[in-house]
Design a protein around this nucleic acid. Structure first.
Length: 387
DNA sequence: TCCCATT
């Protein structure tokens, strides 16, 4: 096991941008320190079989003894690394690193379903608590998936600074089963509570009851009332948040030595555009997008046609809208699909009205990593001119 | 005034 950990931690293939991808959410001086978790008995229930999937009476497979959820994965861990780490325990039936549907960024958690329940147990015993980068991963049995366990996370503010995580749990536990809790602490003052925290209940209705019962209430002896509300849902990002994320990812690609003047141009233009500080001429854009020798289809009434390559078979129009929309006026998107399978053939087209916005989108999204794919984005070239 | 827990 030690060799496994060493192997993963020292894996040179992940050297790329480690310092930058440690997690932009951890930026700034404040950070979570209090990571103590309530280890709830997420554990499987029902009849135990020595091997293989358990088949319940209704015919569906019961994976409660084989399926694990893994939390607090480092932001930069890939699906392959995830599989490799958990595959070292035993044969995996399936596994999935959960990623943002639009940006492909890891959401920091994933699922591993083993063939053998014994391996699931072994994975919990050997990998739970493993430190990877700045994270301490949590490995536990996954609860059966259902709508009732979603959006059960609460954001609590106005907590007395003296209130500990345990105190907070005690306060909330009357409303239901707590899955996780944490109190945010200020790092610069060596872990003083910031008076805000999170409580995740097993069920959304438990969280609702806790809001009813505790929002606006003063905890025993506290001077101020606390605020209890549903936490922001990280998977439902606003357009602005998506933009910010895109810029941060784009900026990451330019943080190396800037021997190329063109890279500096691109980043500057990117940042200026995001705040509407200035417009720039097509000449500047042309000089930075290395389009030498290529004919563009031009603004033939409809606008500027952009070729997007290396989309996944599952890609749909909404992905293109959401990727390109933040950069300006998009009039049309199209995913090219296979006639029989109806799956995306790996490319699509986007039409944008304004040249500078199209060029900005290309400069930002070309080379952008969408999940495990790297997009190629360029102005559509005229076929007639080829060869 | 916000940590990546449900595929």
């Amino acid at each position: 096991m030690q060799s496994l950990r060493g192997c993963y931690l020292g894996n040179p293939s992940r050297g790329e941008a480690q310092s930058n991808t440690a997690g932009y959410r951890d930026e700034g001086k404040r950070q979570i320190i209090s990571t103590m978790e309530t280890q709830v008995s997420n554990g499987p229930s029902g009849t135990s079989l020595p091997n293989g999937p358990v088949i319940s009476t209704n015919g569906s497979t019961d994976d409660s003894k084989t399926n694990l959820i893994v939390n607090y994965l480092p932001q930069n861990m890939t699906q392959e690394e995830f599989k490799s780490l958990f595959g070292s325990i035993g044969e995996i039936e399936s596994c999935k690193l959960v990623r943002d549907k639009i940006t492909g960024q890891s959401l920091g958690y994933g699922f591993v379903n083993y063939v053998d329940p014994n391996d699931a147990d072994k994975a919990i015993n050997t990998l739970n608590g493993l430190k990877l980068q700045t994270k301490t991963i949590k490995v536990s049995y996954a609860r059966p998936s259902s709508a009732s366990i979603r959006d059960a996370n609460l954001y609590v503010s106005g907590l007395p600074k003296t209130m500990s995580q345990k105190d907070m749990e005690q306060l909330f536990s009357q409303y239901g089963r707590i899955i996780t809790s944490r109190i945010l602490v200020d790092q610069v003052t060596a872990g003083i509570s910031r008076g805000v925290g999170f409580i995740r209940f097993d069920k959304r209705n438990e969280a609702e009851e806790a809001i009813k019962g505790l929002n606006g209430q003063k905890p025993l002896g506290a001077a101020e009332p606390i605020t209890v509300k549903f936490a922001n849902n990280p998977s439902q990002k606003t357009g602005q948040a998506l933009l910010t994320q895109l810029y941060q990812t784009a900026a990451r690609r330019y943080t190396g030595p800037l021997h190329h003047q063109t890279q500096r141009f691109r980043l500057d233009n990117l940042l200026n555009a995001s705040y509407g500080v200035k417009r720039f001429s097509p000449i500047t854009i042309d000089s930075m997008t290395s389009l030498a020798g290529v004919n563009l289809t031009g603004p033939t009434g409809a606008g500027w046609c952009i070729f997007v390559y290396n989309l996944s078979p599952e890609a749909d129009e909404s992905v293109l809208w959401q990727l390109f929309g933040p950069f300006g006026a998009v009039t049309n998107v199209k995913v090219i699909r296979d006639f029989t399978t109806n799956k995306c053939k790996g490319f699509g087209f986007v039409t944008m009205t304004n040249y500078d916005e199209a060029a900005m989108a290309i400069a930002s999204l070309n080379g952008y990593r969408l999940g495990d794919r790297v997009l190629q984005v360029s102005f559509k070239t005229s076929k007639q001119h080829k060869a």
